[in-house]
Amino acid sequence: VGDQVLEIVPSNEEQIKNLLQLEAQEHLQLDFWKSPTTPGETAHVRVPFVNVQAVKVFLESQGIAYSIMIED
């Protein structure tokens, strides 16, 4: 199991704000291929294997929908 690319769908401005804060966490080494800008629009982010669980827990705790787009 390696890195994953998640497709994330924020449903409101609050969730977009939370994702932008997540993007700013440099220690997570997230690679946003497509940043969140509009509710209902997908964002794509590559998550290093060591941080996959932490990111998924965060998304679930914020009620942000996501799916695994690419499993490496």
Rank of each mutant, 00 (worst) to 15 (best):
30 L>P: 01
21 Q>F: 14
36 P>K: 02
6 L>A: 01
25 Q>F: 10
61 S>V: 09
32 F>T: 02
71 E>W: 12
62 Q>V: 11
3 D>Y: 15
17 K>N: 09
54 A>P: 04
14 E>K: 07
66 Y>A: 01
60 E>A: 07
56 K>E: 04
33 W>F: 14
67 S>N: 08
54 A>N: 05
48 P>C: 04
30 L>Y: 02
65 A>G: 06
53 Q>V: 10
36 P>W: 03
26 E>A: 12
39 P>M: 05
49 F>I: 07
9 V>R: 13
71 E>F: 10
67 S>Q: 08
31 D>E: 15
1 V>I: 09
18 N>M: 15
5 V>Y: 10
5 V>C: 15
16 I>M: 07
11 S>G: 07
14 E>I: 08
66 Y>N: 01
30 L>M: 05
38 T>S: 09
17 K>C: 08
65 A>L: 10
58 F>S: 02
3 D>E: 07
4 Q>E: 08
59 L>G: 00
62 Q>S: 10
42 T>E: 04
54 A>C: 08
62 Q>D: 02
35 S>R: 15
21 Q>Y: 14
6 L>E: 00
51 N>I: 06
9 V>Q: 06
66 Y>F: 09
19 L>T: 02
36 P>I: 06
37 T>W: 08
71 E>P: 11
67 S>I: 10
7 E>Y: 13
56 K>N: 03
24 A>I: 09
24 A>D: 07
33 W>A: 07
1 V>R: 14
30 L>T: 03
5 V>P: 01
21 Q>P: 01
47 V>W: 01
44 H>T: 15
18 N>K: 14
22 L>N: 02
23 E>N: 11
63 G>E: 05
43 A>I: 15
15 Q>M: 04
59 L>R: 00
23 E>L: 14
3 D>A: 13
16 I>T: 04
65 A>N: 09
23 E>V: 15
33 W>V: 13
12 N>F: 02
18 N>D: 09
60 E>L: 06
30 L>G: 02
72 D>F: 15
10 P>D: 01
1 V>F: 11
56 K>G: 03
15 Q>W: 01
53 Q>W: 10
66 Y>V: 02
31 D>R: 15
21 Q>M: 13
7 E>K: 11
2 G>H: 11
58 F>A: 03
42 T>K: 11
3 D>M: 14
53 Q>P: 10
51 N>L: 09
68 I>R: 03
44 H>P: 02
1 V>Y: 13
31 D>Q: 15
56 K>Y: 08
43 A>L: 15
55 V>R: 00
